[in-house]
């Protein structure tokens, strides 16, 4: 925790300010964490107790977790979500890193037009293009699977290209120019100079897409709702709640289970993650 030292502004009530600020911090902190605490505590109740007016599990009951794992095709749901998130991320990197590099580090005519088109594609609601794209996938007989959500990443993801470009812009062109003088081609500059320097940026773009795919609800709803074998876990959770009526304990156990991978990844990659959100806009 940070202790305030050397406040430059108001001197008379430095301690009072500190107390006021930290009271506020603690209050907001409690409100922030309370929902998660309630979710966890309910997941540790028996199904019966979850329907009563108690807030603390008594006794602690892990049966909901056992039931979640035994009664639901969790392995399949997680497998689908992992397949979706991993492949989408890998495909995105393959297609979008070179694209972002070209936009950020190579001067050429038309770059700005392309960039603008990418921005517009990024900001446009996906529903605007949903019908023709759906028709296209259904003519390829790929509806009912996750492929319509995975494959497009091979052709670049607008948001990722945008994000990566912002990172690549922070790398001074002089590094590339130096390499070019050694008659290194653009591909060489990309792989040997820019990628190593932009590793944190690439990591955060990858994490963003990974989380986006892992959490996606609209995409799986559109393309896989009719085929339970293809459901990823996020979509499964929404459906599961419908089928299990008022079993809040099991629902909350499921909610906890689906959060775990995301939180674990976050704590391992926190730095890249937060920088990704905050610093992508710092351009030259």
């Amino acid at each position: 925790m940070t202790v305030s030292v050397g406040m430059t502004r108001r001197r008379p009530s430095r301690l009072l300010t500190w107390i006021a600020e930290h009271t506020l911090l603690v209050t907001i902190g409690v409100l922030t964490i309370a929902p998660i605490v309630f979710v966890i505590s309910t997941s540790l109740m028996s199904s019966r107790q979850a329907l009563t007016a108690t807030l603390v599990p008594n006794p602690v009951d892990f049966s909901s977790y056992i039931r979640v794992f035994t009664e639901l095709p969790l392995g399949q749901w997680f497998g689908n979500a992992a397949l979706y998130a991993v492949l989408a991320t890998v495909f995105m990197l393959v297609s979008s890193v070179p694209a972002a590099y070209a936009l950020a580090q190579i001067r050429f005519r038309g770059a700005n037009l392309i960039f603008t088109a990418i921005i517009v594609a990024m900001l446009l609601p996906p529903q605007v293009t949903a019908v023709p794209v759906y028709v296209m996938w259904s003519q390829l007989h790929l509806t009912g699977t996750l492929w319509p959500l995975i494959l497009p990443n091979l052709l670049g993801d607008a948001f990722s290209i945008f994000l990566l470009r912002q990172f690549f812009l922070t790398i001074p062109k002089e590094y590339g120019d130096a390499a070019r003088l050694d008659s290194t081609g653009e591909w060489g500059v990309l792989t040997r100079v820019v990628v190593p320097m932009a590793r944190p940026g690439i990591a955060s773009a990858a994490i963003f897409l990974f989380f986006h795919s892992w959490n996606d609800y609209y995409g799986p709803l559109l393309y896989t709702s009719e085929n339970p074998a293809a459901w990823p876990v996020s979509y499964g959770l929404a459906t599961f709640r419908g089928q299990h009526g008022t079993d809040w304990s099991m629902t909350m156990a499921m909610t906890v289970v689906i959060m775990i991978p995301v939180v674990v990844i976050f704590f391992f990659a926190q730095k890249a993650f937060v920088e990704g959100i905050a610093l992508t806009g710092v351009k030259g």
């Binding site: 948001f159 609209y218 610093l279 806009g281």
Partner: peptide
């Protein structure tokens, strides 16, 4: 989905 485009960015 909507949350997506809100991520990032700061401008100059």
């Amino acid at each position: 989905m909507p949350a997506r485009s809100t991520r990032a960015v700061r401008s100059t």
